[in-house]
Amino acid sequence: MEREAIIGEKDHSNWRELKNRLFFGTVVVLAGITISPILLIVYKLLAKGLKQINFDFFLKVAPDTLQAMTAVRNGEIIPGGIANGITGTILMVVVASLIAIPVSIVIGIFLYENQGKKYANLIRSLTDILQGVPSVVLGLIAYIWIVQGVTKGFSALAGSVALAIMMLPLIIRSTEETMKMIPISIKEAGAALGVPYHKIILKVMIPSGFSGLMTGILLSISRVLGETAPLMLTTLGSTTINFNITKPTSAVPLQIWEFYNNPNMIDLVWSSSLFLMGFVLTLNIIAKRISMKYS
C-alpha cells in the first residue's frame, strides 16, 4: 500500500518478470535456430562420410566408374580417394597466396598510410565492390585472361588467379584494420631513431601486426578453399595428380561436383565434403588461436 502510494501506480513487477522471461526464452530459441544448421551439417557429414575416410582416401586418386560400381554392387566401400583433389587444391591455394598476399599487404598498408585521402577512399570502395563480385564472374575473367590468353588451355594457374582475386579484398581490409590497431607511437619510435620509412614498415609495423596479418590470410584461404564455380571455368579438373600449373588440375570442391554427377560415387561426395569442412574448420581455429595468442 505504502509503495503504491509512493510511486503512484500499480505494482508491475510480475509483468516485468514475465516480460524478462519471455525475452530470454526468445533469445534462446533464436540462438538454437541459428546453430542448428551447422550441427545438422556436421552430423550428416559424419554419419554419411566417415566410413569412406581411411589412408587410401588421402593417398589415392579418384576411382573410375567401373571400380566404384563394382564396390557399390558388392556392398564394399568405394576404393581410391581424393589425392588428386587435395594436391590440386593445395597447389592452387599456394599459388593464389603467392600472388595475393604481397599485393594485398602493400595495398592494405597504402590505404592505412593514406587515411581520408580521395584516391585511397576510391581504392577502398573498389575493394569492397570486388568483394561483392560473384565468384563465377571472376572465373570468367580468369578464363579470358589466363586460359585463353596465357596457358592456351585450362590450367591450375588460371584457377589460382581467380582465387587470388577473391583473396585480395579480404587481405587488403584485414591488413588495413591490423595496421590501424598498432599504436601510432610505435611508428614514431622508429621515426625518432632515424629509421627510413620503408624499414619502419618492413621491420617495425609488419612484425608488430604479424598476428593480425596471419589471421586475415588464413581466413581468406579458408574462404577460397571451397570455391567451385571459378575453378570449373578455369582449371576444369583432372583424374591424376598434377603439379604443373599450366595443366588442368583437380581440386576437392571440383571432385565433389564430379562425384555428385556419378550415381556410383555418392558416398565419396560425403567424405570429400567432410574433409573440406574439416580443413576449413581447422584453418579457422588456427586463425583464431593466432589472433588470441598475440593480441
Binding site: 610505435i186 619510435a189 625518432a192 631513431l193 617495425v204
Partner: peptide
C-alpha cells in the same frame, strides 16, 4: 635523429 634523440609521452618500446 642520431644526434637528437627523442622520448615520448607514453613508453613505446617495440613490442616484437
Amino acid at each position: 635523429r642520431r644526434k637528437i634523440g627523442m622520448v615520448f609521452q607514453r613508453p613505446n618500446p617495440f613490442p616484437t
